[in-house]
């Protein structure tokens, strides 16, 4: 943050409104991740968190007039999202095959 640098009114409005909703979406995803016992729902909440991060990249790119760089980073985030969904989906299916459940509280075999 530079001292003395001021944002234009339009950009300030965009940053404020996006920042407000990004924080709320992040809280929603984080709360779900904390309280849920269902592994698939936990994965969905991680995807929601990544959605908030994607929105943050996008708005910062727009405000700083670097949408091209922001798009490059967003594409990287999307690739990570897909691979995460595929691999964690596979892990969940593997857990389901062994335990016949996707409830995280029943995963007692993981206890050291």
């Amino acid at each position: 943050m530079r001292k003395g640098a001021k944002m234009s009114g339009d950009m300030l409005q965009v940053t404020l409104s996006f920042g407000f909703f990004i924080v709320l979406i992040f809280i929603t995803g984080f709360y779900c991740l904390l309280v849920t016992r269902n592994l698939i729902r936990a994965l969905i909440s991680i995807e929601l968190l990544m959605k908030a991060v994607t929105l943050l990249f996008m708005v910062v790119g727009y405000v700083t007039n670097r949408t091209a760089l922001a798009q490059g980073l967003i594409i990287t985030v999307i690739v990570i999202e897909v691979v995460l969904a595929v691999v964690v989906g596979g892990v969940i299916l593997s857990i389901f095959t062994r335990n016949n459940s996707i409830d995280a509280s029943l995963l007692k075999k993981l206890k050291g």
């Binding site: 943050m1 530079r2 944002m7 670097r66």
Partner: peptide, 19 residues
């Protein structure tokens, strides 16, 4: 909260593919 920042440099490629 009032965000108050500006980019340090705006000389960046405008095409996402080039970036």
């Amino acid at each position: 909260l009032v965000p108050d920042f500006k980019p340090h440099c705006s000389a960046a490629a405008s095409d996402a593919r080039a970036i």
